[in-house]
Design a protein around this nucleic acid. Structure first.
Length: 520
RNA sequence: GCGCCUCUAGCUCAACUGGUCAGAGCAAGUGACUCUUAAUCACUAGGUUCAGGGUUCGAGUCCCUGGGGGCGUACCA
């Protein structure tokens, strides 16, 4: 949509936005140009299509709350000023009904020629679907029982140049829904519902933790060394310092530094980035909640997890029972707590343990038809057995306890079994919802675990990371006994909203770039 | 990354095995209508069938290449 230097100065709205010159493939030349022409006509008539502000007295929901009880056919003297987008228009000659939608809901405008006069009424009839208007008038309920504002005055607040999608079928093209989320939100009640759940869940988490005297903090997104999770980071570069940086893959290591510093209960809700494949469950950037509590352990984190998840569901939907793809899940605490070892035995018949000889575990994996790679240690084999034979079959909610030490470099050794760590994952519908440990606070042990990871990285594991010397130094100043918890907020929202794809709960999910700009 | 599916008017969808097949509803335009509710009724206009090649007398339909999207799978402490 570039303007050639030789083009004469544009005059009309259509000229300035780019008219029907072949660049406008997305909107029919007729409809968009028609609306652009209206902008010029309005200005010529002295009407500003994009005025500054509007003083509204009531939202649609407030009108319903105060006057919803009115009898049909009754008009009251109370005058209100409402504002919203015109989503439906029913023109009926000298009487027009418009459905106005604002952030709270919808309200009908009753626009009568007798009330408004011919000029203002026909100007109203000239509105298009999608325009924003403000209106003033008395509250009434029509003979058919629809609560309305009987308009005595109105103003165009913003002219829509592009038409909204089909008023009945909405917008279902997934590509357009995600790229142009604004249109999705205009057209689809379901999209509005899902994001209402998301906003509710996030504010509930904050209220829940704040009430327990947790402190919310913000830690760096740009890391010199990514860590705190096994994932491939995004790499970037700082020009002034001429050094490589990574986008964070977890919040963990900074938050525990803060516990060292004496912030005994700390949490962050923040974006993390992982350079991995995309799927219905994976977006390259997603939102994590992590919280850490001094003097607690992973059993305390289980209680916290089941309570915060149930509370989020209750606040967002009124119920702790959720349903995804026809499967109902009851999130009411307490959730069952089972060890990984016991679950593997239950599902495969094999009693395994990371302290067993490698050959025995390899044989167990082969019997269970779990593929394995050379170089995997005992702990990795046990974890694979769990992930392939147990986890997909768990409906949950359930806490899976006590992971192999080898695969958990940031969790403290189990108090009763040195081959294991005090770690759990909460599983719902075969998927990890939360991950937590009794945090490793022994600096010497931690350095050794990091060094083991560094060896893996040196051997080519792109998801392993090296020694974080500053983090070890922090531990040397003393991290109190500490429980830590991470919850994937997007997946929690998916669960509570009952949707199948992570793209449904992220406002602007990652997509390939649109091809060129000829669609504009 | 691999496999399968998909892309037709602004939106939602039709078009039997290749043969008047480029259509409908909504949205839009014109007209009628002072209690509508996806208002209704009449008429009208609207298309590079994702792009580019190919096969064929003939391609929305079949083949190839490319692009977007979806699903599955792989990867995913």
């Amino acid at each position: 949509m570039s303007t050639d230097d030789t083009t004469p100065p544009p005059t009309s709205a259509a000229d300035r936005l780019g008219g029907a010159d072949g660049t406008e493939a997305e909107s029919p030349a007729g409809e968009r140009d028609r609306r652009l022409a209206k902008i010029d006509a309005l200005r010529a008539a002295g009407v500003e299509p994009y005025p500054v502000r509007f003083d509204r007295t009531h939202t649609a929901a407030e009108v319903l709350e105060h006057w919803g009880h009115l009898e049909s056919g009754v008009e009251v003297g109370d005058v209100v000023r409402v504002a919203g987008r015109v989503v439906l228009l029913r023109r009926q000659g000298k009487l027009t009904f418009a459905t106005l939608r604002d952030g709270s809901g919808t309200i009908q405008l009753f626009v009568s020629r007798g009330e408004l006069g011919e000029e203002a009424h026909s100007a109203f009839d000239d509105l298009d679907l999608g325009d924003w208007v403000g209106a003033e008038g008395a509250v009434m309920k029509t003979r058919r029982g629809e609560l309305s504002v009987k308009v005595t005055g109105w103003t165009l607040l913003s002219k829509a140049v592009r038409p909204p999608p089909d008023k009945w079928h909405g917008l279902s093209d997934t590509d357009t829904r995600f790229r142009q989320r604004y249109v999705d939100l205009i057209a689809n009640e379901e999209a509005r519902r899902i994001f209402a759940v998301r906003f509710s869940v996030i504010s509930t988490i904050r209220r829940f933790l704040d009430a327990r005297r947790y402190v919310e903090v913000e830690t760096p997104v740009l890391h010199v060394q990514a860590g705190g999770a096994a994932a491939r980071p995004f790499e970037t570069h700082h020009h002034a310092l001429d050094m490589p940086l990574s986008l964070r893959i977890a919040l963990e290591l900074h938050l525990k530094r803060l516990v060292v510093g004496g912030i005994e209960r700390v949490y962050e809700i923040g974006r993390v980035f992982r350079n991995e494949g995309l799927s219905t469950r994976h977006n390259p950037e997603f939102t994590m909640l992590e919280c850490y509590e001094a003097f607690s352990d992973y059993t305390d984190m289980m209680t916290l997890t089941e309570e915060v998840v149930a509370e989020c569901a209750r606040v967002a939907t009124g119920d702790t029972v959720v349903e995804v793809d026809g499967v109902r899940v009851d999130l009411t605490p307490p959730w069952p707590r089972r060890t990984m070892i016991d679950l593997i035995e239950e599902h495969t018949g094999a009693r395994v343990h990371p302290s067993m000889p490698l050959a025995e575990l390899e044989a167990a994996a082969d019997r269970a038809e779990v593929p394995r790679e050379a170089g995997w240690g005992p702990g990795k084999l046990v974890l694979e057995l769990y992930e392939k034979t147990v986890e997909p079959n768990l409906v949950g909610p359930i806490f899976v306890l006590d992971y192999p030490r080898e695969v958990s470099p940031l969790a403290r050794a189990h108090r009763d079994d040195p081959a294991l760590v005090e770690r759990f994952e909460a599983v719902v519908l075969g998927r990890e919802l939360a991950n937590a440990f009794s945090e490793l606070n022994d600096p010497i042990d931690q350095r050794q675990r990091f060094e083991a990871q560094a060896a893996l990285a040196a051997a080519g594991d792109e998801e392993a990371h090296g020694v974080d010397d500053d983090y070890v130094r922090a531990l040397e100043y003393g991290l109190p006994p500490c429980g830590g918890l991470g919850i994937g907020v997007d997946r929690l929202v998916m669960l509570i909203a009952g949707v199948h794809s992570i793209r449904e709960v992220i406002l602007f999910p990652h997509l390939r770039p649109e091809f060129g700009d000829e669609d504009f």
